[in-house]
Structure formats: C-alpha cells, structure tokens
Design a protein around this nucleic acid. Structure first.
Lengths: 155, 155
DNA sequence: GATGAAATGAGAATCGTTGTCAACTTGGCT
DNA sequence: AGCCAAGTTGACAACGATTCTCATTTCATC
C-alpha cells in the first residue's frame, strides 16, 4: 500500500485510461493457448475436447477457462458454434462471414457453405409474418463420400 | 435422431406371437394424458413445462414419464422437436410433413413455414460435395410484430 | 382372475455448463 | 522500478436438463 494517500495526486478514478479494444479483453497466456489450438484442427470440437487437446499439448488451462475463452471468442465472431444433435456445443475457427455447415455424421468432416438465396428467403418469409430482428440456424448433416464408401460393405 | 439404439432388447428373445403394433407401445393413461395436453397449446414447450402443465390440469404424471412419452412421440413423428438457443429441447404437436419454424424469441409464437427451394438447395449442395443420406435443421428466430411493438418503448 | 412383460414414479446419477471466490497477472501510473 | 486496481484464472461447488435404476403398478392376454 502507498503508506498514506498521496495528497498531491489523487489520480482520477476513471475516464483517463482508454481501453485499446472496447470488448477485447486481455491476451493472456491461456487465451492465446486456446486461440492457437483452434488452428490445429478442422472440424468442430466441444469445449471439453479442446481442454483435453490443450492438456495433451502440454498447456494446462482450466476447464472453466476454456469455456470462458471459447465463449468470448464466439461472441467476438472469432469462432463459430454448432450445437450437435445431442445438444452439446462445439466450436471451430472459421471465417467471419455468415455461412452454414455441411457436416458428416460419421467422421465430422465439415464443409462451409453459403446460400445467399436462403438468407434472402428467410428474411422475406419472416417479414411477411411480421417478424423483425431475424436470425436463423441452418445445419446440414449427411454422410460424406468417404464414409459412405466404407459403410456400403457393413451390415 | 436421438435414437439411443444402443441397447437392444434386454429381456429374453421371447418370440412375439403377434405384435399388434411393432413399435407403438401401450396407450397408458399417462401417455394419453401427455398426448392430450399437447393439443392444448400452440408453441413449443419443454418437457418440464409439459410436466407442469399436466400437474396444473390435475393429471399427475412423473417427470421421467413425460420425458419418455415425448421422446417416444418424437420418434414416432407425432411431435416435432426444436432445440432452443439455450440448448433445451422443446416439443410441439405438428403436422408430419417436413417443415421449419419461425419462432418469436420473446413470446414463443411459432409459424410453420415451408421452403421447397431450400430443401432442394440443401440436397443439391450436399450432393455436390459427395454427401449422401442428407438431413438438415433450419430454424428462424425473430421478434414477432406484437412483441416488437411492446419492446419499442422498453430499454 | 392370474401372469408376466411393459410402464410408471421417485430419486439417484450423469453430464455439460456456469457460478463462486481466493489467489494470481497484467497494465497503467506514479 | 514498483504498486494498485481491475481483469483473469483455476478448483470445485452448484445447476439444470435429461437419463438411469429399480421396486411397484398396470395392461393385455390367457
């Protein structure tokens, strides 16, 4: 502590420091580790999987911290989220433009797809019904060529 | 498809002499109660809400039973499921034809919508990428006219 | 009516996710 | 260079939705 209060410069409580990035947060070691590991894989991974991946890579980051980091990155648009059919949230680094995914049920291979027509259609239909502030979720699930080839012999 | 086809028949083979309904199950009082209450409302309701609704209606059905009944009805195509943005599963009785929903974030009002063009587009895009056995989820969220009117003064 | 499989219900058990809070960093400022 | 305040972290508790367990009850059939 500063022994007694410095009478000369009480220092303004706030308003003097300018956050370099309004909602950026700090680039801590843990966040950087999470951000880095997100570049090392292709498909969508759950927070827990990311946590395990980090541990395997030698980076020890708390599970709660991984959740928080991914959450923040998702809000910032740095990663995309996808809710699996079982309800689990998964994350993946991807482009910031609005798009959807074509995911293989078997191996998880993902293809980013765009559908301007769909976007427009969603807007139009919504407005026709008086809805505003519209957003939508669209995910396509299927079996990719490779997995389909393998499964043909099964059963 | 939540499915859970993990476990088969735990009991002994037991030759089914004459299955009146292969996968129908029995029309018990509880299931009938759940089926009946599903006709009394419009939007999507979670299993817990349905359970409360039943209790309010004087029908006492265990929560687990409500879950099981809704699950079964969903598999049978008698009700439609929708995963909310928070990840909670909700159910609603609706037509068996494939369609999507336009849901109000505020009041839950739902409009069933169809988009043949979207269906075709999804198929086409998927096939272009070599995917087969394709399905998709598409939900549109927005604020309905009524709620939008109210919120204009709020906040 | 007896019988056995299916179904129910109450609560425990899971599991993903979030909250709590003390200890620790970080950045800014003196 | 060093200190303070605020932002972060991590371990674990808390939570909420859903599923599982299993003793008891109900249904359809004999």
């Amino acid at each position: 502590m500063t022994s007694t209060e410095a009478n000369s410069r009480p220092s303004s409580p706030e308003a003097n420091s300018r956050p370099s990035s309004p909602e950026a947060g700090r680039p801590t070691k843990q966040r950087l580790a999470v951000a880095r590991i997100m570049d090392t894989f292709e498909g969508f991974r759950s927070a827990q999987e990311v946590h395990t991946l980090l541990a395997t890579a030698g980076e020890t980051v708390g599970l709660a911290t991984v959740y928080r980091a991914l959450q923040r990155m998702a809000e910032a648009g740095e990663v995309d989220t996808l809710r699996t059919e079982e309800g689990e949230l998964t994350y993946r680094r991807c482009s910031t433009t609005h798009h959807h995914h074509l995911v293989c049920r078997a191996c998880g291979a993902t293809v980013e797809i765009e559908g301007p027509a769909v976007e427009r259609w969603a807007q139009t239909v919504s407005h026709e019904h008086g809805y505003v502030d519209v957003s939508h979720t669209l995910e396509i699930f299927g079996t990719c060529a490779d997995c389909a080839r393998v499964s043909t012999g099964g059963r």
